[in-house]
Amino acid sequence: MRKPSAFEMSRRNLLIGTATSVAIGATSAQAQNSVPQPLAAATAADAPAMATVSFNVNGEVRALKLDTRTTLLDALREHLHLTGTKKGCDHGQCGACAVIVGGQRINSCLTLAVMHEGDSVTTIEGLGTPEHMHPMQAAFVKHDGFQCGYCTPGQICSAVAVLDEIKAGIPSHVTDDLNVAPELTNAELRERMSGNICRCGAYSNIAEAITEIAGRPA
């Protein structure tokens, strides 16, 4: 295994330089002299369009200059090295990339990073750490609400947001009476979590983990 070269910065560093996502403010650090040059120098016409964006991730302001095509998911994973958010399908069909933006869960694969100027993003890393887990994370461990672990961050972000959605009175497909606040039933949880696929099939345990947290006094 090679040692990280000088221009690389650690995961904890706020500003991470890459050839095309140049951290704003970084100056000399992103020199790529050890890297082979692209076959074709980009011409003005076909060069990637770049844009800057700044948003708050897990309580820290992150400023990035990105190819406009960069999804929020890839900005988190490839540019900020927050790989807890997973890419399962990249097409909004699995939910592994769920994060909480402005208090609402979304699929980070189907939104462009540059559309999130000023937004507040919470990823799985922002909920808790191995040493200080969020209660939902701890409940997933206790109830074995995961197996391979790949859908898990999305499940947990979704679960945290689902409880808020129910609290906010947002109805679901299985809510009996649209004019009454939804209750926190097992059927409600299962419907609301259905945008998060778990191929290992931990659903039954996930439901128990969420129920335990939901049952706690706020």
Partner: peptide, 26 residues
């Protein structure tokens, strides 16, 4: 027994194949 790798997996700290940012050059 709860999984010993559970805290890593539930906090996004388990490193999967595409996620090795801290080894080798970029």
């Amino acid at each position: 027994t709860s999984r010993i790798d559970g805290p890593l997996k539930t906090t996004g700290k388990a490193t999967y194949a595409y996620e090795w940012h801290d080894v080798g050059s970029r």
